[in-house]
C-alpha cells in the first residue's frame, strides 16, 4: 500500500516538476527577454505561453546522440538520477498549513539531503561523456555542490532552531512574522547557496557556456538533455517553494487553498529573483566561488545561527 502511494506521489511529483519546468522555462524566457530589451516568445499562444508545449515534442523527437567513446550505460541513465532526487525532494514541501505530501519528522533534513544525490549523477554523466570539458564541468560541479551544502544547511538551521522541529509542517505552524527580519540574512544565504546548488548563474560555473560550452551535459541531446534542464528547473521550483515555506511562512497569512496559492506566488517571486540575479551578474571563477562559500557564506551563516540562538535565549 505504501509502495503504491509512493509510486503515485512519484508520478505526481514528476508531472508537477515537468509542468513546472515548462512554465518555469517560459517564465524565464519572458523575464530574461524583458531584462534584455526583448519580447521573448510571443508567437505561440498568448504571450508565447505555449512555446514550451511546442518545444517538448521537438525535444522528444530529437536524435538521441551517444558519443562513440562514451560509457554507454552510464551515459544513458545518468540523466534519470539527476532528475530523480529533485523530484523526490518535492514530497516534503508543506503546501499549506497542516498538509504536505509526505509528513515526516525529518522533512527538512530530507529536503537538504536527497537532492545531494544529484552530485553523483552529474559526476557520472560528466565522466561517461568522455570529454575533457564535461569532466572539468563535472569536477567543478561536485566541488561546488558539496561545498554549498554547508551554508545552505546552516541557513535552514536558523529556522529549524526557531521552530524547534525538523518537521516542515511544524515549522510552518510555528512561524511568526518577526522571523522574517530576524532570518533575512539566513534567507539570503539560503538563496545564494540554492542558486549555487542548482548550478545557475552567477554560479553556473560547471556548465559555463563560454568556457566549457555546457559543462557536464555538453554531449547530451534530445530528451536526455531535457532531463538536465528539467532537473535545474525542478531544483529551482523546489528551492523556491521550500524557501517560501520556511522563510516566509508558507501560506501565511492564509490557510487552505488560498494558502497554497499564496505559497506559489511567494515561490514565483523567489524564482523571479533567482532569474533576475542570473540575468544581471557575471559568473564567478571557481576559486572565487569556493572562497566565497567558505570565507563569506559559511561564517555569515554561523553568525546568523548565533544571532538566532541569542534571540532564542533572550526570549
Amino acid at each position: 500500500m505504501t509502495l503504491l502511494w509512493g509510486f503515485l506521489w512519484g508520478v505526481a511529483a514528476v508531472a508537477t516538476i515537468a509542468g513546472g519546468a515548462i512554465l518555469g522555462v517560459w517564465w524565464e524566457r519572458k523575464v530574461s527577454a524583458r531584462i534584455q530589451m526583448r519580447y521573448g516568445p510571443q508567437q505561440i499562444g498568448p504571450f508565447g505561453s505555449l512555446q514550451m508545449i511546442a518545444d517538448v515534442p521537438k525535444l522528444l523527437f530529437k536524435e538521441d546522440i551517444v558519443p562513440a567513446l562514451a560509457d554507454k550505460a552510464i551515459f544513458k541513465y545518468a540523466p534519470l538520477f539527476v532528475f530523480g532526487p529533485v523530484a523526490v525532494s518535492m514530497v516534503v514541501i508543506p503546501f499549506t498549513a497542516g498538509w504536505a505530501p509526505l509528513n515526516t519528522s525529518v522533512g527538512v533534513l530530507f529536503f537538504l539531503a536527497v537532492p545531494s544525490i544529484e552530485v553523483i549523477a552529474i559526476l557520472l554523466s560528466a565522466w561517461a561523456s568522455h570529454n575533457t570539458l564535461s569532466t572539468l564541468g563535472g569536477l567543478r560541479a561536485t566541488a561546488q555542490m558539496i561545498s554549498y551544502e554547508v551554508p545552505r544547511s546552516l541557513a535552514v538551521l536558523a529556522i529549524v532552531l526557531l521552530a524547534g522541529s525538523l518537521r516542515p509542517l511544524d515549522v510552518v505552524a510555528a512561524w511568526r512574522w518577526w522571523w522574517m527580519p530576524l532570518t533575512f540574512v539566513a534567507f539570503v544565504i539560503y538563496f545564494v547557496a540554492s542558486i549555487a546548488e542548482m548550478n545557475r548563474g552567477p554560479f553556473d560555473i560547471p556548465e559555463a557556456e563560454s568556457e566549457l560550452v555546457a559543462g557536464y551535459f555538453a554531449d547530451y541531446s534530445g530528451m536526455r538533455w531535457a532531463s538536465f534542464m528539467m532537473a535545474e528547473y525542478g531544483a529551482m521550483i523546489a528551492a523556491s517553494l521550500f524557501g517560501a515555506a520556511l522563510f516566509f511562512g508558507g501560506g501565511w497569512p492564509f490557510g487552505g487553498a488560498l494558502g497554497v496559492i499564496t505559497l506559489i506566488v511567494k515561490a514565483i517571486l523567489i524564482m523571479t529573483a533567482i532569474m533576475w540575479v542570473k540575468w544581471t551578474f557575471p559568473r564567478l571563477r571557481q576559486d572565487q566561488l569556493m572562497s566565497f562559500c567558505w570565507k563569506a557564506l559559511t561564517p555569515l551563516a554561523l553568525v546568523q545561527l548565533v544571532v538566532v540562538g541569542v534571540v532564542l535565549v533572550w526570549l
Binding site: 530589451m37 526583448r38 563560454s210 544581471t280 557575471p282
Partner: peptide, 16 residues
C-alpha cells in the same frame, strides 16, 4: 567581455 564572463545581459545591451 560580458558574455565571456557570463554577463549575457551586458552583451545584449552592447549589441542593442
Amino acid at each position: 567581455t560580458g558574455a565571456d564572463t557570463g554577463a549575457f545581459t551586458a552583451f545584449m545591451y552592447a549589441f542593442a
